[in-house]
Design a protein around this nucleic acid. Structure first.
Lengths: 192, 192, 192, 192
DNA sequence: GATGAATGAGGGTTCATTCAT
DNA sequence: TATGAATGAACCCTCATTCAT
């Protein structure tokens, strides 16, 4: 019924299977079970669906963060932040990989900011709360720290989940180092 | 004379101008001033030149790091690491943007590890030295910390240089937060 | 209210703007302010509207001829024939241009005869009258002369109004020569 | 060998068979025995080949006029002008029909003047010669008369050869009237 | 090594037409 | 009558790649 959602679903699958460059609109519509022309009623070009995928990924990530962290004290939320994102990027690694190749191909790079905005806003508020609680170092600048954190965590997650053949042990160690790093960087605990 | 280099130069310019997906071999050879067929004497396919671009970017980054940091104590090198990479990514932001879109498109994602390997190796060694010097916290795991650091710094640099319309003030503040973060994360100084 | 007329109006405008080949039914209905499907209630195919345009042009031309010439002696009507058609083709040059491209595209070329029939009939009768009056040469064959005259006048009008960047002076001179030609050809006056 | 000429040949045939709107580039190249892409090495768009067809038609018409008329006195050349053009348009009626539909479809209508220029120039000169010989009326304006004549003759030829199901008798009568008309119009003979 | 004309498969996109409402 | 979302066949054109010179 919801053709827009069906297109996004199909696009994720097809892009993941054949790669962004090789995937054709024909592949997508075939899998979505709609006609060729119908695609263009919802997205103006082959790659425009990337925006739709990105929104969905971020929305889902934010939902997961809320589900896992809401109710905890701000400091505790920050302690678990990396692990939750790590897990979620792992779960959605296909979609995330797409985004990195898809978004940069079009002129839509500026849409990143827009799409990430809710995540940044949420984390910034969390950092402000934690600072008010005295749970992190006073010198932390929430606005920038939010972006630095997201960048560091996602970069780590991608290294593990997308680019390298990382063993489970390596992945755990990588996450551990990242958490140690964040903990110390935020002043949750002194660096050991 | 060096046609291989001319092709890489031209490819960087063309990819940056038209985007990776829309750039054609014809565009590249025209700008390089060579014949269509000549391209295939140096690279086996349209996207194969991305590997060449990546090598050049990383080589140049590593060279810059050596030039700016060699001779300093390990701890001091780490303190300045972010600033140097930040600057370099800013200077090469066109090329860097390409890599993010280009590498993921082919099946070459695994080449990332290979291309980044020298950078990771250098930084890992630097961290080991710094730990031996007592310049950073003993808990730092050089192998993983190297990757975490590179990821965090590059992610921040990309946010500033590629994706957002960031003002100079914002950029400075972003870098400052990143440096504070790294300093505390490595235990160079306690988080303030 | 009269949707058929609205479609013809819109089609004339759209065909003139984008050319017959590039004009779409979507363009036409958008400009006519009706729904896509409504078009097909009035015309069975995209180009069928050309017939409607043609009828309108010819009807209007014939009306203009009657308005300007009725009541004059047959000879005098013939003297003014070229000027009236010239003016009318100038006024409707968009529509006329369409006909030349539109009619030939479909299998409708034979419809020309049918659409032009009333004009030919009217002129043939006028020529017969003029011959009976002794106002033109006795050798004129009304049936064929009607077609030759219409052809000559329209060709001249098209040259001036459609194909060339003709100055007003040139246009006047062209018309003058045409009138001289017709006058002499019909034996209204000996060629000077 | 000459691919450009082969394309024009094939285009004439295909356009004539299927109509301009329905003819595809694929049809043309198949008949020309070349690859799809090769077409675009010679003509920038599907309809651009029309220009090539037009040049050829006019060139051939001019050649025929020279072949049939050169050497005759100017007045005699004018007397036979209509018959020669009539015949030639009959012989090339496919190509001529194309031009009327093809040229108007693109933005190339202004090219008509350019393509017809040699014919106009030749006829204008002929009229000047005839006037100098005293073979036609002194009032004839060669520049404009050339265009009027060409227009009248071609219009008549098209009526006969393209648009109507004209019998041979009708066609002869039509030509006769046209010749009578031209003769009187130029003052070769008084109108009878 | 270098050229560039030729290839031809392939895909994004358009758009005339339909039909359930 | 009117609508406009949906259809899907069809086509123009591009462009990576080849190969004779």
């Amino acid at each position: 019924m919801d053709k827009r959602a069906a297109i996004i679903d199909a696009a994720i699958a097809v892009f993941a299977e054949k790669g962004v460059e090789k995937a054709t609109v024909s592949d997508i519509v075939k899998r979505a079970g709609i006609a060729q022309g119908t695609y263009y009623l919802y997205f103006p070009s082959r790659l425009a669906v990337m925006g739709g995928i990105a929104e969905r990924v971020l929305t889902q990530l934010l939902a997961r963060l809320h589900a896992q962290l809401d109710g905890l004290p701000a400091g505790a939320q920050l302690d678990r932040l990396a692990a939750v994102i790590f897990t979620e990027v792992g779960a959605q690694h296909q979609e995330v990989a797409l985004l990195y190749s898809g978004m940069t191909q079009t002129d839509q790079m500026r849409r990143w900011e827009q799409i990430y905005a809710p995540l940044y806003a949420w984390l910034q508020q969390l950092l402000e709360q934690a600072r008010a609680d005295g749970a992190i170092a006073a010198g932390v600048q929430p606005r920038h720290a939010a972006r630095v954190l997201v960048g560091a965590i996602e970069a780590a997650a991608e290294q593990v989940h997308l680019y390298a053949d990382t063993s489970a042990d390596e992945a755990r160690a990588h996450l551990a180092e990242l958490e140690r790093f964040i903990g110390a960087g935020l002043g949750r605990a002194p660096a050991v």
